[in-house]
Amino acid sequence: MKKFFASLYDLTSFSFRFFKEGAVPPYEIGEFAGHLENFGSRSLPLVSAIGLLMGLILALQTKPTFERFGAESFLPAMVAISVVRELGPVITALIVAGRVSGGIGAEIASMKVTEQIDALEVSSVDPYRYLVVPRVLAGIFALPLLTAYADLLSIIGAFIVMYVTGDMGWQLFTTSTLHSLSIADVVPGIAKTFVFGFIIAIVGSYFGFRAKGGTEGVGKAATSAVVFASFLVIVTDLVLVKIGILIFE
């Protein structure tokens, strides 16, 4: 437990360094682009599949209940709101945490244990600026895009259910979806994905930098990164939901 809080403290100061180091040149544009692509290519297939399934399941599962109250016409609204506000951002973040946080952890850890990070430092390259900053920026950019994409697929999933069961056409579905979504749903939903992107990349980097020993240390860093990033995503979400309610309602 004491170790946990010590890590949390370390992680916090590690995170704050981002705002200090990220602002100063040289900017590693090439690195940033590479890592952005990495976020996309590593998580896109899974995000696509789960996004679509999320919409299908949500619609299938709630349809009977809505029907019981004669409220099928509200189903698109319900799916859109729950996906955009909550499920889309959190589930996307958890998927990416699993795919990318561990990847970043392993990458940096293996550089650490094979002295590549020492080599950077001796070449007057700041390892934090070179390795961490571009990854974190990539995370901050990638998560909103991935989430918006997952949201869209979920809504399409829900439409498929409505269409196949013959309850609703495309026109009606889209208007009722669009009408149901307000700024108070969309803004907090997307805003928190920036935070999730930050968490995923910074936690991966942190455990990478802390790695010790040989290949064993690399595996440990990857696992710890996934566990800790997922946990922090959920806890942060709780806090952000509360803040969102305070601001928008």
């Binding site: 550089m111 590549q116 001796v122």
Partner: peptide, 12 residues
């Protein structure tokens, strides 16, 4: 200083 690391430490 040029530094040759024990394991090479080439950027992989």
């Amino acid at each position: 200083i040029g530094y040759l690391f024990q394991g090479g430490a080439l950027y992989d």
